[in-house]
């Protein structure tokens, strides 16, 4: 294994609450990202996210331990949410975080005009995936960092980074899907509530899990049906591994190939989680500045263990140590295990 050129690689961990923030910092995260409660950031789920006081406490805790905090104000506000988003921007800037994470043009402008000293990271939701688009945001809003959508291969990232004047962050662990972030309306089409504006994919109040007879089954008995606002996302036989209940991980019938059960498939994304550890040396070799762990909705145990595991893997890769890839995060992965995602599978 070769020694990779870039010594400074940041591990950016998610925090849905103060306990998770502390767990991430204690486990070796260099930075933590988190947002305020309400629809101004994109993990707007019940019981999740920070009050101002918690955010201030989180920032103080992280700073004491040498870690950074990025505040996400990354929803796309519709007109009626604009004022709340501007206020969230003010509250975020007042706490002097190490950066804010933003995607919407109105909010980017707002930060640039009213809070010019607050560093801006371009959220993955902006879906900026080429040199010209990233330069556009850099020129107009002085972004310091971009998080790339999970739509680029290793080779494409390798080609892109030397052309850029901003830091690049990529997803390293957690939820894996193939639609480009910020350009996915699969759930909104079913629920009427956009991930871009409401920040939950999908809203749990629309999900139902019920065991019932399969109307078209071949006498195989009951299945556990997962429906989202009445639309069937999946149906599981007993002991079948389950996928996350999002439309991208649904099982559908591709009727161009025939309408029988043989054509029931994960047509968009198989139920696997992202884990880049098997390709970490190559990924670090592209010059990425930060590795992001997905999962502000996850437990503090998840945050701590994913952070610690990625920390060990990065340290090993940076010192050129050959390290077996452990199966230590299995309990945090989806039914079908892990995958290096688009980085490797894009052209496959």
């Amino acid at each position: 294994m070769r020694r990779v050129a870039h010594r400074k690689v940041e591990i950016n961990a998610p925090a849905g609450n103060l306990a998770a923030l502390k767990a991430a910092v204690d486990a070796g995260a260099d930075s933590v990202y988190c947002g305020f409660s309400g629809p101004t950031n994109l993990r707007n789920l019940p019981g999740l996210n920070f009050t101002e006081r918690q955010m201030a406490e989180g920032i103080a805790y992280a700073r004491r331990k040498g870690a950074k905090v990025f505040i996400t104000v990354n929803a796309y506000p519709q007109p009626r949410e604009l004022e709340a988003s501007y206020r969230a921007a003010d509250r975020a800037a007042a706490l002097e975080p190490d950066a804010v994470v933003v995607s919407d043009l109105a909010l980017l402008q707002y930060f640039a005009v009213y809070h010019p000293r607050t560093p801006i990271h371009l959220s993955v939701q902006a879906s900026a995936c080429n040199r010209l688009a990233i330069e556009f945001y850099q020129r107009h809003f002085k972004i310091r960092r971009v998080t790339l959508p999970r739509a680029l291969s290793l080779e494409e990232i390798h080609d892109l980074i030397p052309r850029l004047g901003v830091e690049v962050e990529v997803f390293a662990f957690g939820f894996l899907s193939s639609p480009a972030e910020g350009r996915c309306f699969l759930a909104s089409f079913i629920t009427g509530e956009s991930i871009n504006t409401y920040g939950a994919c999908p809203d749990p109040r629309y999900l139902r899990f019920d065991a019932r007879e399969d109307p078209k089954a071949d006498g195989s008995g009951e299945r556990l049906w997962v429906t989202l606002r009445g639309v069937a996302l999946n149906a599981y036989a007993e002991e079948e591994p389950m996928a996350y209940p999002t439309p991208c991980k649904g099982r559908y019938r591709n009727i161009s190939l025939g309408s029988d059960a043989a054509n029931e498939a994960y047509a968009i994304q198989p139920p696997r989680s992202l884990d880049v550890r098997p390709i970490l040396p190559q990924l670090l070799d592209t010059g990425v500045r930060a590795l992001k762990i997905e999962g502000r909705q996850r437990t503090e145990q998840y945050v701590a263990q994913a952070t610690a595991a990625l920390r060990r893997a990065v340290d090993a890769a940076l010192s050129g140590r050959e390290e077996a890839f452990p199966a230590d995060l299995g309990e945090f992965s989806e039914g079908d295990g892990t995958s290096p995602g688009c980085y490797v599978e894009k052209e496959a």
């Binding site: 069937a232 099982r251 559908y252 019938r253 009727i255 309408s259």
Partner: peptide, 10 residues
Amino acid sequence: LETLDGNPLY
């Protein structure tokens, strides 16, 4: 694509 209970979706 149809849902498993036969409704056109994507």
